[in-house]
């Protein structure tokens, strides 16, 4: 399919204490995918593999339909990349740093950079080390967007930023998506950033993809169930995820809201989950998916 901008198939990478266990992710042109999971779940490893910064053990990564190892340079020309920690020379000014990066991109567009610099109010003459965290992120973003990238890859861009800057960033991302040929792959553990704008959500935990689907389906299909502990003993046939019990009741996530309504109806409290709820119930350590009796 021509429309797939990113296609990861059976990707594996083994470390001593962690492994990526054959993951699959597909992103089409024109959409934002939020890549969520707790710290240490494999988000950064996956992004480093996509960016060909580390070597995979097996599997395939295709970007723009091309193998990412064989076409490393031509692919990177078409990607905008924003890290959590920026990798700039701290001693240089914003303008000097931009001039260092600029020659690496054949499609660099100074006019676009200047426009972002103006919109973001980047202090061009200030040394990088004196920039606030938010300003560094904006500078990274301006760099990433100034060479007409088709795919924007962001690794935890909002971590440590205040809500105002996060909301500005989301605005920029939505402006970018006015072009239906562009896509954004965005890793974050701050799921509230994605609750609104993400088209697709991929949840990773412990090196495995737990789910990958449209956010709308996810939030409509899943529900939080709360009830009395005695209800857990009955033959209800509902499969609970991340069951939590305390002295006075239980709560759990269910993948099938309709089934919960049919089987348990008014006898339990049914609530709409947020992405954070879904992530927490799935990734809770200990008694995982508790099957029904």
């Amino acid at each position: 399919m021509m429309n797939k901008i990113l296609e990861i198939t059976n990707l594996r990478k083994n470390y001593k204490n962690f492994s990526l266990k054959g993951i699959n992710i597909t992103l089409e042109r024109g959409y934002i995918m939020g890549f969520i999971g707790p710290n240490g779940s494999g988000k950064s490893t996956t992004i480093k593999l996509i960016m060909n910064l580390i070597k995979k053990d097996s599997g395939e990564i295709k970007i723009f339909g091309l193998d990412n190892e064989q076409n490393d340079i031509s692919i990177k020309e078409r990607i905008g990349f924003v890290y959590d920690e920026n990798h700039f020379y701290e001693e240089l000014t914003v303008k000097e740093m931009k001039d260092v990066i600029r020659p690496f991109y054949s499609k660099w567009d100074e006019g676009v950079f200047n426009q972002y610099a103006k919109n973001f109010e980047l202090p061009l003459k200030k040394e990088i080390k004196h920039l606030s965290k938010g300003m560094k992120m904006k500078f990274s973003l301006a760099i990433a967007l100034s060479h007409h990238a088709e795919l924007l890859i962001m690794d935890e861009p909002t971590s440590g930023l205040d809500p105002l800057i996060r909301s500005e960033l989301l605005d920029v991302l939505q402006s970018l998506l006015q072009d239906e040929n562009k896509s954004i792959f965005f890793s974050s553990h701050i799921t509230s950033d994605l609750d609104k704008v993400a088209d697709y959500i991929t949840l990773i935990d412990n090196g495995e993809i737990i789910l990958s689907q449209t956010k709308d389906e996810l939030l409509e299909e899943y529900c939080i169930v709360k009830g009395r502990k005695s209800q857990l003993d009955t033959h209800h046939g509902v499969n609970f995820i991340g069951l939590k019990q305390n002295d006075f009741g239980f709560e759990a996530l269910s993948k099938n809201k309709k089934e919960v309504l049919n089987q348990l109806g008014d006898s339990v409290l049914i609530e709409k989950p947020t992405l954070e709820d879904i992530m927490l119930f799935f990734t809770k350590r200990g008694d995982h998916n508790v099957p029904s009796h």
């Binding site: 959409y31 939505q174 998506l177 993400a198 088209d199 956010k215």
Partner: peptide, 17 residues
């Protein structure tokens, strides 16, 4: 659908649907 998604701060898939 893209303009509407941006204005309302929601996803493109939602407005498309």
């Amino acid at each position: 659908i893209r303009k509407l998604a941006k204005e309302l701060n929601i996803s493109v898939i939602t407005t498309k649907r």
